[in-house]
């Protein structure tokens, strides 16, 4: 299968059309990464996809990687399908699609996205794990001013789900699956059956609605915002179709950021998080080292904490919050071109 290096997110469909025209099956093979945090329904979503593929006569392999055992830890699943699939694990830049139920997790797994692939990412944000009763979150609460990384489709899953969202949290995944189904091209019926067979019986109806809403939303999105992708995306360009509230929360600024987009993860984040250690305060208790989900920190030979793998830091803040000595601060650089409207 040839994949164009594309500037248009819709191209997979177009490509599929091309392929169809060439008398090949609409989708013969593909790779997905599904990411999120525990309890969000990642496994269920990957089960639905797998089932839909199987029902369509394709071979499927699926992996599940749970991060930390605690509730709220990272969960990632790889799904590969095709006429015959051998290896289960994906390598970076191999996934045509990413489904992220949590924004940060999506960003972390973006490196798996193939050039030209599409990442459907929920704008829901949950704070990582361990220390918290739940990764209860909000939407991303900073401006998407530096642009959305190339290939990312930000989805306010609850808003898109509409009334079906009352069933949260299991609903968000079917919204994203609805969007995915537009590009993946398996038959509607197959998807619906796979959903009905997987989700709890009493949630079937709501999930089907969510699936449908996701599908419609994404079709409209492609016509409006999506068509602009590839040139530049501004957060306030990401228009939502009528009747659907914005897919992206713009943080505190109603004007929205005015910065032009640049499309790398780093820029989007506003640069790598900065970990500041007040060495005089650190007592070397090792708590931060253990609790950091990304294993960023370690103790030096003086038993004082250092960020030995700073580029892995997701700025989750866990280390700082659980440091009994207040010896860690987490900072994020905002690029100079990100302004807030009012200033």
């Amino acid at each position: 299968m040839t994949v164009k290096t594309i500037d248009q997110p819709g191209t997979l469909v177009e490509q599929a059309r091309d392929l169809k025209e060439a008398n090949e099956p609409a989708i013969s093979q593909g790779n997905l990464v599904l990411a999120g945090v525990g309890g969000q329904g990642i496994i269920m979503a990957s089960n639905i996809i797998s089932l839909a593929c199987l029902e369509s006569g394709l071979d499927v392999k699926k992996s599940e990687v749970h991060g930390m055992s605690q509730r709220g830890g990272t969960v990632v699943s790889h799904v590969r399908f095709g006429h015959e699939v051998h290896s289960v694990m994906l390598e970076p830049k191999q996934a045509e699609w990413i489904i992220a139920l949590e924004w940060e997790e999506g960003l972390r797994f973006l490196e798996y996205l193939k050039p030209g692939g599409v990442a459907f990412m929920s704008t829901e944000r949950r704070i990582p794990p361990t220390a918290f009763a739940d990764r209860l979150g909000g939407k991303i609460d900073y401006a998407l001013g530096a642009g959305v990384p190339r290939g990312v489709v930000p989805v306010d899953t609850y808003a898109v789900a509409g009334e079906a969202a009352a069933e949260r949290p299991v609903i968000a995944q079917t919204v994203l699956l609805g969007a995915l189904s537009v590009d993946m091209g398996l038959s509607q019926e197959t998807w619906r059956e796979a959903i009905a067979a997987t989700v709890p019986p009493k949630a079937v109806q709501a999930n089907l609605i969510a699936f449908e809403n996701g599908r419609t939303w994404y079709e409209r999105w492609k016509k409006t915002t999506g068509s602009k992708l590839g040139s530049s995306v501004k957060a306030n360009d990401i228009q939502q179709p009528e009747g659907v509230s914005p897919g992206v929360s713009l943080g505190g600024s109603s004007n929205g950021p005015s910065a032009s987009a640049s499309a790398s993860v780093k820029d989007w984040r506003g640069g790598a998080p900065r970990i500041e250690v007040i060495r005089d305060w650190c007592k070397g208790c090792n708590i931060c080292v253990i609790v950091c989900p990304e294993r960023v920190l370690s103790l030096d030979r003086f038993d004082i904490v250092v960020a030995s793998k700073p580029d892995r830091c997701t700025a989750c803040g866990l280390c700082a919050r659980l440091c009994p000595d207040m010896a860690i601060e987490i900072w994020v650089d905002t690029p100079a071109h990100v302004g807030t409207g009012g200033e």
Binding site: E329, I330, V332, A336, V338
Partner: peptide
Amino acid sequence: AGGSVAITGKEK
């Protein structure tokens, strides 16, 4: 805008 923002440490 255009500087560093603290994710944690504000309480200090």
